[in-house]
């Protein structure tokens, strides 16, 4: 655990050293802030016009922003280590593949966690505006975090199979577009057994399930299995070099 934490700390630090963290936090807060409080999604749907004390607009915007930002966060994680050869340095120390992968994963999840933490003032503001369903809001934060974690797993795997960061970004972004965006809008048109598989892989259904305020184990299992699977694949891909 010490080793995982050491790697995670170093990684988080390099997010902040290389400005990635500030760009991510800045853009995340500007986008979500602007759309949640001022503009809304489509004419007059900002928080004041909706007449409902909830964070629907925020979570919706955050979802979209994360689709773009997570690939940017994960692309360099392992690709850069492979390119510069520092991965050899890490793995010849008392570090296992698993510890390395978990450390990097943890750093990214914490980074997203920090971004979400910065939006807590939104929540606090909302509570002063009216009756808030606290359960729903906590669940939608949880849903965003789980969705991000699963997406980070995909990004980490993409970063482990190439030493080119751009390639890693594109793979992750492309998979993100399919599972987080395209499937969301094609759900209704898909049928048959293939259709039901694709519908099951639709991140948005599971995300929405949790964000509505229901902690259905089915949805939790979905995200945890994606995380487990992608991290396992990443370890395999690291082990393949040998």
């Amino acid at each position: 655990m010490d080793v995982i934490w050491t790697i995670a700390k170093k990684e988080l630090r390099s997010f902040f050293d290389s400005l990635i963290a500030y760009i991510l936090l800045g853009a995340f807060l500007i986008f979500t802030g602007f759309l949640t409080w001022i503009y809304g999604l489509g004419g007059g749907s900002d928080i004041f016009m909706r007449g409902q004390a909830d964070l629907r607009v925020f979570t919706e915007v955050a979802y979209w922003v994360l689709v773009v930002f997570i690939p940017a966060l994960t692309m360099r994680l392992l690709a850069e280590e492979r390119k510069t050869g520092t991965i050899e340095l890490l793995l010849t120390k008392a570090v296992t593949n698993r510890q390395l992968v978990l450390g990097k994963f943890l750093a990214c999840v914490l980074m997203i966690g920090i971004a979400l933490l910065f939006t807590l003032p939104y929540y606090i503001t909302i509570t002063t505006l009216g009756d808030v369903d606290h359960g729903v809001i906590i669940c939608s934060y949880l849903a965003l975090l789980l969705m991000s974690a699963a997406y980070i797993g995909i990004g980490l795997f993409a970063s482990s199979i190439t030493d080119n960061q751009i390639v890693a970004f594109l793979i992750t972004f492309f998979l993100g577009l399919i599972f987080l965006v395209v499937l969301r809008f094609t759900t209704a048109t898909l049928s048959g057994s293939m259709g039901s598989i694709l519908n099951y892989l639709n991140f948005h259904t599971h995300y929405e399930g949790i964000a509505r305020g229901v902690l259905d184990t089915k949805n939790l299992i979905f995200f945890f299995s994606i995380i487990f699977l992608t991290l396992q694949l990443t370890q395999l891909s690291l082990a393949k070099r040998q």
Binding site: S14, T92, V95
Partner: peptide
């Protein structure tokens, strides 16, 4: 691995650290 110190060829380092 704890008992081994290793300097790889080309000496890879984290330049930003």
């Amino acid at each position: 691995k704890k008992h081994i110190g290793y300097l790889p060829e080309h000496n890879p380092l984290y330049l930003e650290m």
